[in-house]
């Protein structure tokens, strides 16, 4: 069985500065993995490459065994839609849409009819404990609630891969613990591969594996 993610000799420089140089790594299906490292070391860059939001200068990125090198913008978009869920530090919900439509958005892009997409979104929101807030706008929710909406949105397309870039960075202790529990449960119960960028060593310790990004290199921290 191929790995959920493999990077082969990936190189990325930005503004003439090498951020990641010759990174090769492989992450197995269903694994939970923390990405740690000092600020500005390239953790987000690494996650964006894996999430097909960015392209490497050299090297290959394979998602579920599929080589995405040289794929068109549309092919990458479809791959993101089907296989990858994103959770961002600043939530990135669309302020004009209701909570329900925010969650249903990936299914709209998939071409699913509106009623079916909304139905699936409703189910997902109930799972993250927000069944009562579906017609609210994101601005009417607390930070923790917003991040749970974002997680519901990341999961609604049933991806194999969940990428979270400091998902608790904007949350206080209790809400952060809630979100971490939710992510861990998803990894455990649904078998989603989880990649989590964090500054918090305690949080990293909850993951099965820990990758350290430093000086353009990525290595296992333990």
């Amino acid at each position: 069985m191929s790995a959920a993610i493999s990077l082969e000799h990936v190189h990325r420089s930005l503004g003439g500065e090498v951020i990641l140089g010759d990174v090769s790594l492989s992450i197995a299906h269903g694994q939970s993995c923390a990405i740690v490292g000092p600020s500005g070391s390239g953790k987000s860059t690494l996650l964006n490459l894996i999430g097909l939001l960015d392209e490497p200068c050299h090297g290959r990125v394979l998602i579920g065994g599929e080589n995405m090198t040289g794929a068109s913008g549309a092919q990458r978009a479809m791959m993101r839609n089907r296989s990858i869920g994103f959770v961002f530090q600043s939530f990135h919900l669309l302020p004009r849409l209701t909570v329900l439509d925010n969650v249903a958005l990936p299914l709209f892009y998939r071409g699913m009819p509106v009623p079916r997409a909304r139905c699936a979104a409703r189910r997902q929101l109930q799972l993250v404990g927000l069944g009562a807030r579906m017609s609210h706008r994101p601005a009417e929710l607390s930070g923790g609630q917003r991040q749970r909406v974002a997680i519901a949105r990341a999961l609604v397309g049933e991806p194999q891969l969940l990428l979270a870039d400091e998902p608790t960075g904007n949350l206080d202790g209790e809400a952060a613990a809630d979100v971490l529990e939710l992510l861990k449960a998803l990894n455990r119960e649904r078998g989603v591969t989880l990649l989590l960028v964090t500054h918090d060593p305690a949080m990293a310790s909850h993951m099965q594996r820990c990758l350290n990004v430093r000086a353009g290199q990525v290595g296992d921290a333990r």
Binding site: R80, L94, P106
Partner: peptide, 9 residues
Amino acid sequence: VRMALGARP
């Protein structure tokens, strides 16, 4: 955000 969620160009 839309692109991340699967919107093509």
